[in-house]
Design a binder for these strands. Structure first.
Length: 410
RNA sequence: GGGCAGGUGGCGGAGUGGUCAAUCGCAACAGACUGUAAAUCUGUCGCCUUCGGGCUACGUAGGUUCGAACCCUACCCUGCCCA
């Protein structure tokens, strides 16, 4: 299921391969975010053309809209959105955190309450009340047809008192066990059904789906260690680190990773949830993280912020021999990338592509000035082109990361 | 020629005697965004400033008043209606 191909000697970075029901993916990898069954502004064919290998979708959002009946009717999210690659679904645990447990009470529709058995919440769409349990969230993810499922967790905010973090952690652990038990029971149940020749295909998918636990514990070392140790002993297919990049300093995040990651099983994939900026990603890869997801490339693209490589060492792959050598981004340098805001006045009359070395659809065909015009005119094409570009940057970053691990420079 | 309505900052449009450098929207300028309620949000937006404040401004020119974008007079301009 997960195999490590190269272990860096320079750092804890490793290159591997993660097998899922919808294909094997080289690690470390990045998950573009398709919260509601679409990477905003892109079609599934765009994702495929970009070379995205896996996407992340969200249990909470899909459950509310279009709802389980529709998802069942369509035979799951893969068919619904016509995406053949693997899908990881977040559990909705993050929504409990971001929608607030009362933090945004001004906007009265939202309402989240954590109780021992699960999470009560009101739909942001229509105010209707719902209840998630560790088990129901697994069931929903099965209906979605996720290749990788996440447990329902309690993501502590930042800052968070130790008492609260400990309480959140206790629930997270309890829920993790319940999710695992549900998954185990479900597999047995399906096996029984198989014996009677029923729903063999669905059974295969569910049996092949992976379940990941999530380490919490805020920024408290003993809690994080406790969490990592506790979850490592359980029979998860992979482990995630959650509750980071929620407002703490980068330094703090790196510190937490430094003592948490070594406690995770070496032979299981490690997923740092919600991270992050390129420098965060590289640091985390060096500390042994294999999987990342983040809204940054897509959200910032829609806001006109574009990621660019700095100082390309050479112009891109002029010959076949060069191509076989691999990519040439020096990601170990400090300022290896920069961000521009295409809406800035200075790009108004810029007739050149923002990066002639970039192979994305935007850079290959259009100028900076044109994209600015599309943004200012409110043309939807702006969102698509910008999103394509930023995702290309992030996917290239991971291509480079994998290459550098293999080469021994990371 | 007569009647009516109106002229406010880049634009639209509030204000109709003091707390108005003037609500608000747009545009402009910049910033933020980390398991997406985000094509969102924040700040700046007359000129100058040692950031206390100072200066010039609501069609033009006068006037009334302690004080005028706001009241009066004349003129200029715009729109609609009647001849």
């Amino acid at each position: 299921m997960f195999e490590i191909l190269h272990q860096s000697k320079k750092s804890s970075a490793r290159r591997g391969i993660l097998k899922t029901a919808h294909g094997a993916i080289p690690t470390p990898f990045f998950l573009p975010i398709a919260t509601k069954g679409s990477v905003k502004a892109l079609a599934s064919s765009d994702l495929k053309n970009l070379g995205a290998e896996i996407i992340l979708s969200n249990t909470y959002h899909l459950y509310l809209q279009p709802g389980l009946k529709v998802l069942k009717k369509f035979g799951g999210l893969h068919k619904f959105m016509n995406w053949q690659g693997p899908i990881l679904t977040d559990s909705g645990g993050y929504q409990v955190f971001s929608l607030g447990a009362g933090k945004r009470e001004k906007k009265d529709v939202s309402f989240v309450k954590i109780i021992k058995d699960g999470v009560k919440f009101k739909s942001f769409l229509d105010g209707s009340e719902h209840f998630f349990t560790p088990e129901s969230v697994q069931e929903i993810q099965d209906i979605i047809g996720a290749d990788i499922k996440m447990v329902l967790d309690v993501c502590s905010p930042h800052p968070c008192s130790k008492k609260q973090a400990a309480k959140d952690l206790e629930l997270t652990h309890e829920w993790a066990k319940r999710a695992l038990e549900y998954q185990r029971d479900k597999r047995y149940e399906i096996r029984d059904k198989n014996n009677k020749n029923r729903s063999a295909k669905l059974a295969g998918e569910i049996q092949n789906s992976l379940l990941f636990g999530i380490v919490q514990g805020s920024t408290y070392k003993d809690l994080r260690l406790k969490s990592a140790k506790f979850l490592s002993k359980l029979n998860f297919d992979g482990l995630a680190i959650g509750g980071l990049a929620v407002g703490e300093e980068n330094k703090k995040m790196y510190e937490v990773l430094k003592y948490t990651v070594p406690e995770l099983p070496k032979n299981k994939p490690r997923y740092l949830m919600g991270v992050g900026k390129p420098e965060n990603i590289i640091e985390a890869v060096k500390q042994g993280i294999d999987m990342f997801d983040c809204v940054i490339p897509t959200r910032e693209a829609r806001h006109g912020r574009l990621y660019l490589w700095c100082h390309p060492e050479r112009s891109p792959l002029r010959s076949r021999s060069e191509a076989s050598e691999g990519p040439h981004r020096n990601i170990t340098k400090k300022n290896f990338y920069k961000i521009i805001n295409i809406n800035n006045a200075k790009f108004k009359n810029n007739t050149k592509p923002i990066d002639k070395n970039c192979s994305c659809e935007f850079c290959q065909n259009y100028s900076a000035g044109y994209l600015q015009h599309l943004f200012k005119a409110g043309e939807p094409l702006a969102l698509r082109l910008a999103t394509l570009h930023n995702l290309k940057f992030f996917l290239d970053l991971f291509f480079q990361i994998r290459y550098d691990i293999k080469k021994g420079t990371l």
